[in-house]
Write a protein that binds this DNA or RNA. Structure first.
Lengths: 211, 211
DNA sequence: CCTACCGATCGGTAGG
DNA sequence: CCTACCGATCGGTAGG
C-alpha cells in the first residue's frame, strides 16, 4: 500500500526532514552561520539535493517562524479562553506560554533570534503576529487591573516581563534536567501572578488553589 | 598640545570608532550578517583600512562581550553591596541589572544573541562570566528564603525570571519613548520583589518605602 | 588610508 | 539524488 499525503498540498516526508535538520542547526548556530551544505551533511546529502524539497534557505526560515507564531498564539488563546476568571486566565495563559517555550525550544530560539535574518515583507508579517500576541497579555492584565484583582503601574511592562520570563526558559531548558517541564510551568504560573500582584492577586490565587 | 592616550595601551580614537560602528551593526543585523565592508562603509572607509585599527572581526566581538559582562557584573555587585538588607539588596541589584540593559541596548543585544558566534576558547570564558553573574542572584534569593523574607519554590527559577525580564528591556527600549528609563527601572524593581514574594516580601518592601 | 588581490565559501542552477 | 559549475561575496593580506 503506497502512502498518500493527508492532503494534496502536504509536505513530503523528505521535505519535513530537511526543515527539521535546518531548524536544529538554525537554533544551534544561527541562520547565517548555517549553510545549505551543513543542512545537507546532517542528512548525508549533497547541498544541491536539498532544492528538490525546499525552494530556498530563506523559505525554511520564513515557514518556521510563521508556523511557530501561529501555533503559539492558538495554544495560548485557547488556554485563556478556558476560564471565565481573570486571575485564572492569566495563570493559564502564562502556563501555556511557558510550556510552549519548554516544548519547542528550537522553534522559539529561532523565532526570537532570527527576526533580523527574515527578509521583507515577511519580517513585517511576523512582527505583527508577535505584537498581536503580546497585546493579548497586555489587555488581559488591563482587565485585571480594572477589576481590582491585579495591581501594577504598567500593564505593558508587566506583560512584557511575563512573556520574557517564558522566552528565557527556551535558553536553558533541557528535558531530563533537574527541573521537569511541569515544575517550570507551574512555578512560572505562580510567578506571573506575583508580577501583577500585589498581595491581593496572590491571596486570591492561593484561596482559589485551596478551594 | 598633542593629545596623549590615558595609558600607553589605550585604544586609539579611531579604533574606538571602528568598534562602535561594528557594535551598532552587530546589534542591528547580527554578527554574521555584518561584513567588514559594512562596518567600513559606516565610517566612509574601505574595508582593508579597518585592519589598521583592529586585528580581526572576531576580536571586536570578543572584546564587546567581555567588556559588557565585566561592566555589568561590577555595577550589579556594587548595587547589591549598597544595603545590608536582603530585600533591599534584591531590589537594587534588579534595578541595576535593568538599568544597564536600558542604557546599553546594543551591547546586551550582542551579548545575548551572538554567543554562538564567539569562537572558542572565548565562548567558554564568557559563558563562565554569565554563570557567575546569574549565581549572584540565585544566592541572594536563597539567602532571602532562608531569612524568611522571600517565598519561592525555586530560587533558581526566580533568579532566571528576574534576569530575563531585564534582558527583555533591551529588545524594545528606546530612549524618548513613553516610558522613561526610571519608569522602567523602578517598576522592574517592584516586579522583582513580586517574583520572589509572597505577600511578605511585598508588604515588607512597601513598609520600607513608606518609612 | 588606498588599490589590487588571495583562497574559501556562499546560495543556487543546469542538466542529467 | 548527483556532478559540475555559476557569479557574488566573504575575511584578510601585500605592498605602498
Amino acid at each position: 500500500m503506497a502512502k498518500v499525503p493527508a492532503t494534496p498540498r502536504a509536505r513530503s516526508a523528505r521535505s519535513i526532514d530537511v526543515r527539521d535538520a535546518a531548524l536544529t542547526l538554525f537554533a544551534e548556530r544561527g541562520y547565517h552561520a548555517t549553510s545549505m551544505k551543513d543542512i545537507a551533511a546532517a542528512l548525508e546529502l549533497q547541498a544541491p539535493s536539498l532544492y528538490n524539497h525546499v525552494t530556498a534557505k530563506q523559505e525554511i526560515l520564513r515557514d518556521v517562524m510563521a508556523e511557530t507564531m501561529t501555533s503559539l498564539t492558538k495554544i495560548t488563546k485557547s488556554a485563556l479562553a478556558s476560564s471565565p476568571d481573570t486571575v485564572e486566565q492569566l495563570r493559564r495563559a502564562a502556563e501555556a506560554h511557558v510550556r510552549f517555550h519548554a516544548r519547542h525550544v528550537r522553534e522559539v530560539r529561532v523565532g526570537n533570534h532570527e527576526i533580523a535574518a527574515l527578509e521583507q515583507p515577511h519580517r513585517s508579517v511576523i512582527t505583527k503576529l508577535r505584537k498581536d500576541y503580546s497585546n493579548m497579555f497586555v489587555e488581559l492584565i488591563e482587565r485585571g487591573v480594572a477589576e481590582g484583582v491585579f495591581e501594577t503601574r504598567s500593564p505593558l511592562l508587566a506583560a512584557y516581563a511575563i512573556l520574557q520570563m517564558g522566552i528565557g526558559v527556551s535558553m536553558w531548558f533541557k528535558p531530563g534536567g533537574p527541573l521537569s517541564e511541569d515544575d517550570i510551568v507551574f512555578q512560572y504560573g505562580d510567578i506571573a501572578l506575583g508580577v501583577v500582584g500585589g498581595p491581593r492577586a496572590v491571596a486570591a490565587a492561593k484561596a482559589r488553589r485551596r478551594a
